[in-house]
Design a protein around this nucleic acid. Structure first.
Lengths: 195, 195
DNA sequence: CTGGCAATATGACGTGCGTCATAGAAGGAC
DNA sequence: GTCCTTCTATGACGCACGTCATATTGCCAG
């Protein structure tokens, strides 16, 4: 963990990973700095806003990461279709579960479940994070030939199904939900280009 | 809250509601008994297994509730099709958000996000809860004419999309994700009967 | 060399948590 | 009545948490 990044970046990253595992309420700052191989004193120095600030930055980082991944997937595709993009997004999670088990989910979903109902400020942060992820998906769909009017709602469908399938996969410790969602959704997604 | 049910039942119910709002880690037992208008001493009497037992029972209760709701929806439908069933399931959440705001989500999803990665015993409980919800959906699809081979994966798609859309709706404090998912998924679901 | 600022180190404080110990009330069985 | 089981009441314990106060280091500008 004590790699080339700055202590501050490592703390944000470690916070994001902890949220993925245990949720926001279950994330302890002492544990985060330890994982980040960072000094405890750095917490109050880099994040004077306390836990809220750190969580907000972790979520923003996660959203940027997801958005960058979407852009990467789009470039990788030889035949760029919505279904293929969705399959690649799901593929990433299957690989994650393969390699590291089912301990980690999506930080945005975890934050939503934990604090969307009680902390409106953090809720707005999560909303912005989801938007930063949905936007590139919708844009990619348009470039693939999906009518602009449908691109947004198809992006919502993709993210919703993916998030739900990730959760189901974790709960069952089985990738089958991810495979099922991809299999069932691919025809619908690719059909949206044809018309 | 001090209605006709027994103190024990009220505690389980209040625990489920608290999990929906704040997640498992964010749920405090002192707060649960207070909401349930139940004596604190009842906690250690009815739930000698501590918080884990209470959470497990709350999740099991939630799953039973969801399963019963599915059965009710199927009966309500004049023209029973998969799309209409899904629309009704989503409709319930839109009404919930309308009446009570976006404070409460799905307890199963919250439990998955919080503890699926750390507590395998509770993870198994969540898995059982999801199965108890998926089973009646799959059975209903079969009765509507969906080929048995597809019924299960379509049920997974429905639950996944619904869960994800609920989360997105909470994060954005907006029902649009639920509407989008229903709109996009209805043709696909109803098409599964025709063939 | 030295002043000053960024960064780190470390201990303490108060709070809220799950849990436990122990005692008391309620009410039927006999 | 008395006894026993079920349920309730209440305080305390230990621990982990977020936060704060306060030193101390490292380092570069002047």
């Amino acid at each position: 963990m004590a790699n080339g990044h700055s202590p501050r970046d490592r703390i944000v990253y470690a916070a994001a990973q902890s949220i993925r595992e245990r949720g926001v309420a279950g994330t302890a700052l002492r544990d985060v700095v330890e994982r980040a191989c960072a000094p405890r004193g750095s917490l109050q120095h880099y994040f004077p806003g306390g836990k809220d600030q750190l969580v907000a930055e972790a979520l923003a980082w996660s959203a940027d990461y997801a958005a960058a991944a979407v852009a990467r997937y789009e470039q990788q595709l030889r035949t760029p279709t919505p279904g293929a993009l969705f399959a690649l997004m799901a593929r990433q999670w299957q690989d994650e579960f393969d390699k590291r088990g089912y301990t980690r989910g999506c930080p945005l979903l975890a934050a939503t479940a934990d604090v969307a109902g009680t902390d409106d400020e953090l809720r707005a942060t999560v909303e912005a994070a989801f938007d930063a992820w949905l936007a590139p998906v919708g844009a990619a769909l348009k470039r693939m030939g999906v009518p602009p009017a449908r691109a947004k709602s198809l992006a919502v469908l993709m993210i919703s199904s993916l998030e739900g399938a990730i959760a189901l996969a974790r709960a069952r410790a089985d990738q089958a939900p991810l495979r099922a969602v991809v299999r069932e959704l691919t025809p619908l997604l690719d059909q949206a280009v044809a018309q």
